[in-house]
Design a protein around this nucleic acid. Structure first.
Lengths: 327, 327
DNA sequence: CCGCATTATGACAACGTTGTCTCACTCGGG
DNA sequence: CCCGAGTGAGACAACGTTGTCATAATGCGG
């Protein structure tokens, strides 16, 4: 900036005035300054500006499990849309379902003085955020609640959705229903399992632990589980997939199986409607989840001091075929 | 920081030393400082630090068309992985295929002094980046080349891939092949169309312009195009989808059609192998694209001054069934 | 007990901006 | 011709850090 000032023959402050479109600069002077800026390719350093003004940094942080997972990327997009409408940019990071990494990313973002933080938590302990929140960085948890602190949270109705899935299958004659979930350390997985159990109870079928498998979904783990669940002497006739990852691996494992159970998947996913048979899902609006969380965050950023809120978004069953009959 | 210093009864510089793990601080002093830091919930301001040190900001910018599109989110993930390994964070932004927005995002990121910029360009004019590049911000273009400047670029073999797709269909007896691409303003779309034409020539079938439709893919545009292409008196017996968006809409439009042409899609996509019939695709490694571009960017960041490079990654046809026979 | 290296600490400036205050100059009215 | 208001511009400090240098306190050999 001082280079520009020297070239234009003005003071550095005048350059600042021009850059900020402040009035009270003579048009001739402004023109000289603009010319110098062009010539030198000057661009003001936003970091320094924010430091001096003590204002917002114009960024928010988003910590998810994996920005490459379609579920989180859709979330990311929704968040970005709101952020843009508030003139902010988004710093993203993938925790990889590792709570240390989640913590690292979150604190790093705080050190960068993001205006707010959106977290899909990997772990259960969030005491580390208390000082940051006290220092004025709003935090909103989404998809999963915070472990041991009170904070704004936006969730979907995992429990109700899974109960509905069980009901749907029972209405179509199934009594031996298996549940294939993600690792039980993950809130949504645990909650959906709880819904499965509750659904069994409400629909008068026995909850059979041998029909449940909870683990990080990979082709191998899901393949192994599915062979066990539908291969035995008294096999399940229907399966509930605990999330879109499980569903995808499950579908692949079943593609060439002789016996193909009925299927309901928690989470909608692209092309589910074009498979044969089309996959019945418990759908929820991922964009709405991102929007709601981001809107809440920006309300906080703009000074909303009300008590922490907990929002639970509805889910709905989309019957496409795979839940009505065996595949 | 001065609060911490006051509480610990030391100078602000000593706090700095403790925070930075510099030697030559007495253990007792350090302990007092650490206690004060804990008590006050202090976290050093990375913005100020970077300003003072004049070092890197520890961030890179990534501008894509839509972070929510599975293609770009996979790219995002790959970039993030490399960035993390170099201790950087990623600022992402979606241009929405709008060149003004692309420019806005890129320049904003430069003003934030990102250490480097990865751009999937929406427009064809990139002169606006020249001052930034001259000022030392390395820029790598990926998936599409820069419009009017010389810069590092990482592409996939759009031309060769589409030629291969045509060849595959011709080998399976098709002579009336349609091409459904994205808007011809998009480099990859134009290039694939060029490959289609070249493929027709090389395989001795006539290139028929009435079998080509190039437009932004939506359910409506693709539906309309497909009705025209396979509905007429002399319909196409095979279709090449120009990218994964086109393919998805195309599959949906064909789901209940009487006549279903053979299909090859440029870009692999999730579940393509589980459709009926499984979709034959021109696959390319999106992660490799992101990795290559990010690696190149970090080489530049670390001072590589060699001539701008142009990398073209190979693609390969994955025959799954939809290209061998009509659907 | 002195001198000198070593260790621990602090004062100060600087990074690139912008807010505040001050100053010089112009202009119009009395 | 003087004065007050208005206009345009600069000097300076400050944002929160860290690099440089200076200085005080300590230890050790002679």
């Amino acid at each position: 900036m001082s280079d520009v000032a020297r070239l234009a023959g003005v003071s550095i402050k005048t350059v600042s005035r021009v850059v900020n479109d402040e009035p009270a600069v003579h048009p001739d002077t402004a023109e000289r300054v603009v010319a110098a800026i062009e010539q030198l390719g000057f661009r003001r350093n936003l970091g320094a500006r924010n430091l001096r003004r003590g204002s917002t940094t114009g960024t928010i942080g988003l910590v998810v499990e994996d920005v490459g997972n379609p579920f989180y990327s859709e979330l990311n997009r929704a968040v970005e849309r709101i952020a843009t409408s508030f003139g902010r940019h988004v710093l993203t990071g993938s925790s990889g379902e590792n709570s240390d990494r989640e913590r690292e990313l979150s604190l790093e973002f705080c050190a960068r003085r993001v205006d707010g933080l959106l977290i899909v938590p990997a772990g259960l302990q969030h005491g580390y955020l208390v000082p940051e929140m006290r220092a004025g960085t709003p935090v909103v948890f989404l998809d999963r609640p915070a472990g041991d602190i009170v904070a704004d949270t936006v969730l979907v109705d995992n429990l109700g959705g899974t109960i509905e899935a069980v009901g749907h299958l029972v209405r179509h004659g199934h009594r031996r229903i298996a549940f294939l979930g993600d690792s039980p350390d993950i809130f949504t997985a645990a909650e959906r399992l709880r819904g499965f159990r509750e659904g069994c109870v409400r629909n008068g079928i026995s909850y059979d632990e041998s029909l449940v498998a909870m683990q990080t979904p990979t082709p191998e783990t899901v393949g192994h589980a599915v062979r066990k669940l539908i291969g035995g002497p008294n096999p399940a006739t229907a399966v509930i997939a605990g999330n879109n990852r499980v569903a995808v691996h499950l579908l692949r494992a079943l593609a060439h199986a002789e016996r193909r159970p009925a299927l309901v998947s928690f989470d909608d996913f692209e092309l589910a409607d074009l498979l044969d048979p089309p996959v019945t899902v418990i759908a929820h609006d991922v964009s709405a989840l991102g929007h709601a969380a981001a809107e809440l965050l920006f309300a906080r950023i703009q000074g909303d001091q009300s008590a922490p809120r907990k929002v639970v978004l509805p889910v709905h069953l989309v019957a496409r075929g795979s839940g009505e009959a065996a595949l």
